[in-house]
């Protein structure tokens, strides 16, 4: 790798981080306005006989996963995440996703450093 390409690579990386920073900030702002402590089922509830949730729908057992454009991506979100993403957060995430579209030159490596003791399968999306 020559000097120019190293510099270009650094420049691209910085741009990418800036993109993430921007979206991160907007998501955080959204989170503050839309905070909801009741979004998950609460702890012990003596009035409930069971904590099981019945599973009826099978439409997401397996599905084709493909999108190329923002409208295609947003259509997927609307179809499979109804009521979970409002328009604002969907737009922020769409922008972040498409600004981070993988390039053929990207290194396909998942090297994010794990936070202390956290299992990768929770947050390493």
């Amino acid at each position: 790798m020559n000097l120019t390409s190293v510099e270009e690579s650094r420049k691209l990386e910085n741009q990418k981080n800036m993109v993430i920073d921007n979206e991160r900030m907007r998501i955080q702002q959204w989170a503050v306005l839309n905070a909801n402590k009741n979004i998950f089922q609460e702890y012990a509830d003596e009035s409930e006989e069971t904590y099981w949730k019945s599973r009826e729908k099978e439409d997401t057992y397996i599905m084709m996963y493909d999108f190329e454009t923002v409208p295609e991506f947003e259509k997927l979100c609307t179809t499979f995440l109804p009521g979970i993403l409002d328009k604002e957060i969907q737009r922020v995430i769409s922008v972040a996703v498409f600004k981070n579209r993988p390039q053929h030159t990207d290194v396909i490596k998942h090297t994010k450093k794990n936070a202390e003791g956290l299992p990768m399968y929770i947050y390493a999306f």
């Binding site: 990418k16 993430i20 979206e23 991160r24 998501i27 995430i93 972040a96 996703v97 600004k99 981070n100 993988p102 998942h110 994010k112 936070a115 956290l118 947050y123 390493a124 999306f125």
Partner: peptide, 8 residues
């Protein structure tokens, strides 16, 4: 911890 990995 997770946003970059999620979107990219």
């Amino acid at each position: 911890f997770s946003l970059e990995s999620l979107v990219s």
